[in-house]
Structures are given as C-alpha cells and as structure tokens.
C-alpha cells in the first residue's frame, strides 16, 4: 500500500472518530470516509442536520458511517456508546480521539474544580475510550490509536494551564501505550496541532494569537483539512513503522 491506488488510503478499514460534529473531527470523518473507511462518528448530542449530512456522505462514497452519541463528561453514557460499537462485532482498525474542550485562564484564576473538570474531558475520558477500544484491538492483534495533543502540551502556553497540562499528559500516555501495545501490533501516535481555524481557537485572545503567529514560519492559521491529512497518514499503513511519536502540525512554530 503506497497511495498509488487512487488515494484510497483506508480502504475497507473501520475507524472510530470522536468529536465529529465540527472542526478537526468533522474534517477527519469526511477525509477518512473519502479514503474508504467505515466510520463510527461519535458526537456529544444527537443532531438531525449531522445525521442527514452523514447519510448523504455515506451514500455518495459507499461506506458506512454510524453515529454514536455520548457526552465525554458522563462515564455511563460513554460506556454505553462504546458498548454499541463493541456489540457490532466489527473489527476496529483505527481510533482517533479528537473530542475535547479548551479552557483559557491563568493558573491562579483556575479553580481546582475547573482543573479537574478539564482533565476529566481532555484526559480521563480519552483514556477510558482508549482502554476499552484497545482491549478489542489487542484481541484482534492489530490496531491504531491517534491522540490529539497540542503544541500547548509541548511548549506550554500562558493562559492555558489546564488545557496544556492535559495535552502534555496525553503525550505521556501516547508514548507509554506505544511501548505497551506494540506486542499486539497496535501503533499509538499523537499530533500536536498549532493554531487551527476552528470554533475552538476563535476565542483565543488576540495577543496570544499574534505571539504564536510571530513564531510561526508559515504565518497563517492551519485549516482542519491540513490536520485531517496528517491523521490520515498516521491512520494508514503509510506510517507502518511510526509509533510513539508526536507530530507537530503547526506551520513551524516549534
């Protein structure tokens, strides 16, 4: 497999993508589908427009896209969602943990309660999903997990203590899991996006945005497709010898 067969890099693979309603998750779901993957498209809330869109997309391309709803803040919902995926008895080739939240506040303005809440959404829930799904992958003796970290998790970012700490924790988990799960033929990698054009970065203070752009080589925000393409690379066999890595998709900030 080298991409020469019409760019269908995920032909016949089954992928779970979380956070599919918009932003990076949405772009990833669409790109994966166009590359031949069947998808469990996980979102927080049921949404009619979303369901109509994925029905059309799935018809147009000829892949299955199944919506799965759960709120990352609710463990019971999360488990129920994962159980419906497991109940399908399908092989799970790829898990992309996109869903998450951002939080902007200085360290001394961040309550411990808020800190724990952000960790619940941006770290523990991802770990819980990963634990559940990699059990299935280990049985299959194959799999591929991709976590969305952030350059904030590598460089730090003033005003993002909770968010950046979660994203750093995800990197630690990624590297450890790459080592623990390699015997089961499961690869685990992360990407670290920089400033990407999404709703999530729209409330980034202008000062922080200017500071990041001044450090950036490419001097523009990335678009969600540019992140989705890197996820496609990591999800596909193009990266079959890449594991435990964090790939910065940041236009050259670091």
């Amino acid at each position: 497999m080298d991409g020469s067969d019409g760019n269908m890099l995920l032909n016949g693979k089954n992928a779970i993508v979380t956070g599919c309603l918009r932003g990076i998750g949405r772009a990833t779901m669409e790109l994966f589908a166009r590359n031949g993957a069947n998808i469990w498209a996980c979102c927080q809330n049921q949404d009619e427009e979303f369901e109509r869109d994925i029905r059309e997309l799935s018809k147009e391309i000829g892949v299955a896209i199944v919506p799965v709803y759960f709120d990352l803040a609710d463990n019971e919902q999360l488990k129920a969602g994962l159980r419906t995926i497991a109940a399908s008895k399908q092989k799970i080739d790829v898990l992309v943990n996109v869903a998450g939240m951002t939080h902007n506040a200085l360290f001394h303005m961040t309550s411990m309660e808020k800190m724990k809440y952000v960790f619940e959404i941006d770290f523990f829930s991802q770990i819980q999903v990963t634990q559940y799904i990699t059990k299935i992958m280990a049985k299959q003796k194959s799999g591929n997990v991709i976590n969305i970290s952030s350059i904030a998790g590598m460089d730090g970012n003033p005003g993002q203590i909770a968010y950046s700490s979660c994203k750093a924790a995800l990197i630690g988990a990624t590297k450890t899991l790459a080592a623990e799960l390699a015997p089961y033929n499961i690869r685990v990698n992360a990407i670290a996006p920089g400033v990407i054009e999404t709703n999530m970065t729209s409330d980034l203070p202008q000062e922080a945005f200017s500071r990041l752009m001044s450090k950036s080589c490419i001097k523009r925000k990335g678009v969600t497709d540019e992140v989705a393409n890197v996820l496609l690379f990591l999800a596909s066999d193009l990266s079959s010898y890449v594991t435990g890595q964090v790939i910065r998709v940041d236009g050259g900030i670091g």
Binding site: G194, C217, V223, N229, V230, L232, F233, I247, V249, G252
Partner: peptide
Amino acid sequence: MSSYITGQVI
C-alpha cells in the same frame, strides 16, 4: 498532505 508541517523531524 503535510501542507501545514514544516521544520519538523519525524
């Protein structure tokens, strides 16, 4: 595919 990646070592 890597249009937003530069200055990196993979």
